[in-house]
Design a protein around this nucleic acid. Structure first.
Lengths: 243, 243
DNA sequence: AGGTATACAACTCTAATACAAGTGAGAACC
DNA sequence: GGTTCTCACTTGTATTAGAGTTGTATACCT
């Protein structure tokens, strides 16, 4: 197989650190334990950890172990709050309602991204405390979705249902005016501003496994992006002119 | 008629890169895999890939593989393409026009972020090929801006003018309807959707040195964010509910 | 000249193993 | 109590091997 494993492991450990699963100052599991957990050799685990050391996230002492760096130099970065965390914190109850669930022919751009024409499309609306805050449409290859039921999709996040190790994603964020359909679902006036974003998620093999589109009411939502480095421009990173 | 096959292959691979089928930074399929897919020899695939290397789109390392050029190994959380890159590629000429340049008392939120009340505020509009695509307002502490002139600000990006090593930034991205003022500057109808983002930039000392707000017309702009790892939620990373 | 086929060298990643060197905690001893 | 010793465990480093990859050269076909 053609995946470079220590990248994935570095990302996994990193996300655990950032999510607070490994608190600052505490020890990480030993190299042996991690190599057992991920079923890779100790050498590979080391490479992953050394990446984190280069990034200043972790450090080690011989004979002692690896620990989360950052007692002295506070990391000003990362730690993006996910919707779920925020809801937990504020005590709001999340809820998903599936609107459409269909195996069908993919739109052209989705078809090229997924490299299939036959896809499963799931459209649903997400609510926080009964108030809608997102319309989400997800496409995946039909064969991947064959064993999924509507109840599955309503209960669990899509990521957990796919039996594929996921690597990363790219997403575009734009704004638009709400269509009549969107306005009705989100309970906002037609034409009021919404955030629209499209995300493609890839597996560790580099295959695009998910395409999703999201619509958010602008008055309730905003994105937060942490940039570890600054670019040369005052223009916000990642902005792109579209035709 | 004699067709040169590696040109077509180069174009095909290129379109996959640009469409995001091969994510930035990730590995391309190996020369062997590609030669099997296109039913051509490895030599031909190589010629195609070498064209892409000449164009700066891809690169390779012996024993490692081909990958999408642009970010090398240890790229952090969010790798973002800048406006300037895109403009260079598309041949558009960027232009800045300063609208306001004043030393004054800071608004409350800016004052708390910068830990000063006396600030320099610069408001300007950015144009691409004569068309406005952004309204940018930048605040920095008055003492830092004392030696800056309007001409400086019009000529160079703000980052270069400050004699401080910058570490990173966090930015929020939201949407809103254009006000009359914004609409006039961006030449769009009042009330049409705009992307609004606010960024705070910190120095390596952890001090916030810049606060900036940006307004973009939604029909011309969108953000692209690469997420090296996925979070547990299908909801886009960094989205935040606001009150 | 473009394309195929083949072979080989050099490099990368990963696994498996071994050993050196440091740490920490408790046992043993004075 | 205080000190030393021992032992299990950890990281640091090196070596071997194999599979997979790019780099390069040669010969041949259309």
């Amino acid at each position: 197989m053609r995946t470079i494993r220590y990248h994935h492991i570095a990302q996994e450990v990193k996300s655990r650190i950032l999510s607070g699963a490994y608190a600052t100052g505490r020890l990480l599991p030993s190299e042996s334990e991690l190599s057992a957990e991920f079923s890779v050799s100790r050498v590979t685990v080391r490479k992953a950890l050394e990446i984190l050391r280069d990034e200043g996230l972790a450090d080690s002492r011989q004979g002692f172990g690896w620990f989360v760096a950052g007692d002295t130099v506070r990391q000003p970065l990362a730690r993006l709050a996910t919707i779920e965390e925020q809801m937990r914190d504020s005590g709001a109850t999340p809820e998903r309602r599936v609107l459409e669930f269909a195996f069908e022919k993919a739109p052209k751009d989705v078809a090229t991204a997924l490299a299939t024409t036959q896809v499963l499309r799931v459209k649903r609306v997400n609510l926080a405390d009964g108030e809608p805050f997102a319309i989400v449409t997800v496409w995946c290859a039909a064969e991947r979705g064959q064993h999924l039921s509507m109840a599955d999709v309503e209960r669990s996040p899509f990521y957990e249902l796919l039996d594929v190790p996921l690597a990363g994603a790219t997403q575009t964020i734009g704004a638009d005016a709400a269509t009549a359909d969107e306005a009705a679902l989100l309970k906002i006036p037609v034409g009021s501003p919404v955030l629209k974003c499209q995300r493609t998620t890839t597996s560790v093999d580099g295959v695009t496994v998910l395409v999703s589109r999201h619509v958010f009411p602008a008055h309730r939502t905003e994105f937060v992006v942490d940039l570890p480095f600054v670019d040369q421009s005052i223009a916000p990173s990642g902005l792109r002119l579209v035709e």
